Simulated assay, not measured.
Amino acid sequence: MTTVFPTLLDRFAATLRGAELPPENPHHRAILDALLEVQRLDQQLTGSIPAHGRPDGTGERLEQLTGALAERLAAGRELAALLSSHWCCCTEEEIAEDDEEEILSCPDEHPPTSGVVQDALRVFADLGYPDALASADLVAALRRLPGTAGDRGRYADLTQARLAQLLAPYEISTRDVMVPDGRRRKSYRRAALAGCR
Rank of each mutant, 00 (worst) to 15 (best):
M1V: 09
P6M: 04
R11D: 10
T15V: 13
G18K: 02
P22A: 11
N25P: 07
N25L: 09
N25I: 08
H28Y: 14
A34T: 01
L41Y: 10
L41Q: 09
L41W: 04
Q43E: 13
S48F: 09
I49Y: 09
P50V: 03
P50H: 06
P55A: 13
D56S: 14
T58C: 12
L62F: 03
E63W: 07
E63F: 09
L65A: 02
T66N: 05
G67E: 14
A75L: 05
E78M: 06
A81F: 12
A81P: 05
H86T: 15
C89S: 12
D99H: 15
E102L: 14
L104K: 12
P107M: 03
P107E: 06
H110G: 11
H110P: 07
S114Y: 11
G115C: 08
Q118D: 14
A120R: 00
D131W: 06
D131H: 02
A132Y: 02
A132C: 10
L133T: 02
A134H: 06
D137K: 00
L138S: 05
R143A: 01
P146K: 12
A149I: 01
G150E: 08
Y155S: 08
A156W: 04
D157Q: 04
T159P: 02
Q160N: 12
R162Q: 07
A164F: 05
Q165F: 14
M178I: 08
P180S: 00
P180E: 02
P180N: 03
R185G: 01
R185F: 02
R185Y: 02
S187M: 04
Y188G: 00
R189E: 01
R190M: 03
L193A: 03
G195R: 02
R197C: 12
